[in-house]
């Protein structure tokens, strides 16, 4: 599978989840069981740089979601 297809698969998988908007990196590893975690994290980081995904941080833990998704983020944005 090529990189573009991998990215598409990530977007589709995240969109299909209706109950969650933020995911641990480990959830992305599960999408690609044959890939090494290091490769998956590089792919995720590339998608963050592209503006498709975004990091969410509590300070101690980092989670990843589709850019703009999630109630809290929208609430924060609307106050800007």
């Amino acid at each position: 599978m090529g990189i573009e297809e991998d990215k598409k698969l990530i977007i589709e998988t995240l969109k299909a989840k209706t109950t969650k908007t933020k995911f641990y990196l480990r959830d992305f590893n599960k999408i690609f069981p044959e890939k090494k975690p290091r490769e998956v994290s590089k792919l995720v980081n590339e998608m963050v740089t592209d503006g498709i995904l975004e990091y969410w941080s509590s300070g101690s833990t980092t989670m990843i979601g589709l850019k703009g998704a999630g109630v809290q983020h929208e609430a924060e944005d609307s106050k800007e």
């Binding site: 969410w56 941080s57 809290q72 983020h73 924060e76």
Partner: peptide
């Protein structure tokens, strides 16, 4: 304070 955020 809200829990965490997307600032970066």
């Amino acid at each position: 304070w809200k829990h965490g955020g997307v600032a970066g």
